[in-house]
Amino acid sequence: MDLILWGAFPYVVVVLLVSGLIWRARYDKFGWTTHSTQVHESRLLRIGSPLFHFGMAFVVVGHVVGLLIPKTWTDAVGLSDHTYHLLAVSTGSVAGVAAAVGIGILVYRRFKVPAVRQATLKSDHLMYTFLLGAMALGIVATLLNSTGATGDYNYREGVSLWFRSLFTFQPDYALMGQAPVAFQLHVLFGLGLFLLIPFSRLVHMFSAPLKYLFRPYVVYRSRDPQQLAHRPSRRGWEKVGS
């Protein structure tokens, strides 16, 4: 079981994520959008959406730092475990609370504003389940870990090591199997969320328009040659040449 969950599943997620993104870019560019509902309701969205998005961005940065930077490095610069956790929990909780409050407002709005409820996609139900689940479990895991309910478990010697072992294709699945249940569930919901990215509105995270900063204001484009008279015939519509 540990092998399937922590040894195989992460790779399945990565493969589906990458292939899903390629599929979406190739066959469903028209569906690739934020599906914004701001035209229906702006007052709540203007508070909730930036809170959630900016909060989430910092949460992601926090995860990257926590998972990728080995304990030996922070030990080497003389950062004690206690100080590290104080730093991580204080900055992390600010970001986490912002994201949680933000998503709270957004979900409230989605239920309460009729036009927004109407605009909810089928994929949103699953997406919101995993997003809210992952966020709630993350908060629970942090609380349990900080209050000592998980004993002296240090995720930097458990989850983080397992995560880094994934990159060497020698996943230390047993390590993850020993982690507290809250961490295990958080990781599973997180992986599930990654899996949903290409198949839900979450895909818009891959179109962050940074190129905007470096392009001239006005964009000129020529007419698509595919639309002109001498375009090649499409399959099944070849001319007979008479």
Binding site: K29, T33, S36, S207, V219
Partner: peptide, 25 residues
């Protein structure tokens, strides 16, 4: 932000590329 809107070189018509628009509004 997406560069989905453009002015056509040939006739100056301003259009939205529906495949590139990401709904940033």
């Amino acid at each position: 932000p997406s560069g989905a809107m453009y002015k056509r070189v040939e006739d100056g018509i301003v259009l939205v590329d529906q495949d590139q628009c990401r709904g940033w509004r």
